[in-house]
Design a protein around this nucleic acid. Sequence first.
DNA 1: ATGACTCTTCAAAAGAGA
Length: 263
Amino acid sequence: MRIATYNVNGVNGRLPVLLRWLEQTAPDIVCLQELKAPQEKFPEKAILEAGYHAIWNGQKSWNGVAILSRLDNIQEVRRTLPGDEEDTHSRYIEAIIDGILVGCLYLPNGNPAPGPKFDYKLSWFERFKTHAAYLLSEEVPVVLAGDYNVMPTELDVYKPERWLDDALFRPETREAYKTLVDQGWTDALRKLYPDEVIYTFWDYFRNAYGRNAGLRIDHFLLSPQIAPRLKAAGVDRDVRGWEKSSDHAPVWVELSALVWNSS
DNA sequence: ATGACTCTTCAAAAGAGA
């Protein structure tokens, strides 16, 4: 079972890239962020023809998240993050697929910081932590995948000293991520590659991809009921080099079907 | 320290992204 997450940066503008990547790598489940499309403009037909059923939460111009599955077995649980009825951003959607609860998130960027956008980021983060703690209390297999807009440590930034005041790297943001993980989650890529430089984003400026001036901001968090099934994980780095690519690359985890019980 | 690029939209300039 392969689950992937991909910030597409415009699901219609990037559709050829998305379809090519789906065909090449054929993940079982896909979380998409930054659809940048209203609900009625989601390319459902093209996605279906590519072999995927989908649920999505669109929004005009910005945000937007979706969950795709090769099997028609998506049980939608929610399409908003609990805790603030006033929040109009489409940044969260959650479903149960094959007994796995999948949460697809697009955490706010938060720049410029400090300011109202940074406040929104931190309050969204707090709501997300509250919900994540609830999911842990359910003691079921949970995968929280998406664009967290956080570089967790200095290892995750090409030049940490340049990002100290940025909303993606400020102490408050890193602390929020750390306390989230410390609830009992496994950061899948760091678990398998504790010391490696891994990036999931390279901006469009100054040949950042060519220079490998990247960031690791797209993450997979696994609950204890599924973390032992983690077999492999990686970044489809080459996709970032394709024509008309998103500024993010897809990230994936491979989960074994069964856990070996040593007792 | 700036600005580099690319997306979106009542469709030209502007906001957002990270």
